[in-house]
Amino acid sequence: MKMINIHFSAVILVLLTLISTMLAQSTIPIGVLALLVTLSVMVKGQQITDIFMELNTAPTKWRWLLLSYVILVPLILATIIYI
């Protein structure tokens, strides 16, 4: 089960990276681009911390400490740049 999670997580990470790059090179409105790529980096961060770093089985406080980083930092960066 754990190994399946690792394979699945790697596929999600690769796909989101490819989609983000395509979106950045497309002509979609800047607000939509900002929203989609910010969400994409949050999901990628969640996959790395939960699956690769194995924090989904770690004490809850540690897990949320790292998850708050991967959610808040992209959110703060997007807010500074776009709003």
């Binding site: 983000s20 790529v37 990628k44 911390t49 992209p74 960066l77």
Partner: peptide
């Protein structure tokens, strides 16, 4: 875990420098 941290940081670098 250290290596995954390096990966995690790059994901944000890629977003900030190459995508946005």
């Amino acid at each position: 875990t250290y290596w995954h941290m390096v990966d995690l940081v790059w994901v944000i670098v890629f977003f900030l420098i190459y995508i946005i």
